[in-house]
């Protein structure tokens, strides 16, 4: 599939969110988010702490249930139906801020368990794919170690490999580099950039604006449970329209 071949095929969005709302008790965390993501698009979400970025991204694979509005992922609407949710979760990989590797399993087991148990792959296939992925993220020699024996950057790369092993159609990243030391951030971002260039659909919460500039198709600025402004990196970085986005961008770009 060559994306440059003209004329562009009319594709359907892979993720559709319409007026998604979410309350935690009385607290209105998401006040109506709408977003459509096309296949192979890279979306970057940023905004102040507590603005609902994580909550939103977690509604996409229903780690949090939304309470009104509509979310359709890969043609499946997210409802209470458990089977649908598990299908959606297999098609969406997720990478967490705190890695969340399984400490009692080796790196290899961390990567292979999900495809073996959920995609019913044979072990030999799962391990072959896992080795390829470990090579892709640059740590094939760590396969038999336990997570605790790896550095933070290595752990996060294993987490990315683990998510990719399910061969998801899209990947969600929730601040994947913010728990890392500065010298490890680059190794993880490099993997993510490579992934974006390979055509993966990605939604990334991050404040690494270098990354956003390099690969993002569109940026969304969240504040207080709302999308305040969205657009291409060019538009947002150079001509922000809203006062709040201006201020926030000035803050994070200044250092």
């Amino acid at each position: 599939m060559n994306r440059n071949s003209a004329p562009a095929r009319t594709e359907d969005p892979i993720i559709i969110c319409r007026d998604v709302q979410k309350w935690f008790g009385k607290y209105h965390a998401l006040k109506g988010i709408s977003m459509e993501v096309m296949p192979q698009e890279v979306i970057v979400i940023f905004g102040p702490s507590g603005s609902g970025k994580s909550t939103f991204i977690r509604t996409i694979n229903r780690l949090e249930a939304h309470q009104s509005g509509q979310i359709i992922v890969d043609g499946i609407e997210l409802t209470h139906d458990v089977r649908n949710i598990e299908r959606v979760r297999m098609e969406t990989g997720m990478v967490f801020q705190q890695f969340n590797l399984f400490p009692h399993l080796t790196v290899m087991q961390n990567i292979t368990y999900a495809p073996m148990y959920n995609r019913k792959w044979h072990r030999s296939k799962a391990e072959k794919v896992a080795m390829e992925l470990l090579e892709r993220v640059g740590i094939p020699e760590q396969a038999e170690k336990y997570p605790a024996q790896l550095s933070g950057g290595q752990q996060q790369r294993v987490a990315i490999a683990r998510a990719l092993a399910m061969q998801p159609k899209m990947m969600l990243f929730d601040e994947p580099t913010s728990a890392l030391d500065p010298e490890m951030i680059k190794e993880v971002l490099d993997v993510m950039i490579e992934l974006a260039q390979s055509g993966m659909t990605m939604i990334v919460i991050t404040h690494e604006m270098g990354f956003a500039r390099a690969v993002a198709d569109r940026l969304f600025f969240f504040d207080e449970g709302l999308v305040v402004e969205s657009g291409t990196p060019d538009e947002l970085f150079n001509f922000p329209k809203e006062e709040r986005s201006k201020q926030f961008l000035a803050q994070i770009l200044s250092h």
């Binding site: 299908r87 969340n100 987490a159």
Partner: peptide
């Protein structure tokens, strides 16, 4: 067992029994 463990497992599509 950290909450994140359950979440990561759910995000990978494991059933609650597994």
């Amino acid at each position: 067992v950290d909450r994140g463990q359950r979440e990561a497992a759910r995000a990978l599509g494991f059933s609650s029994f597994n």
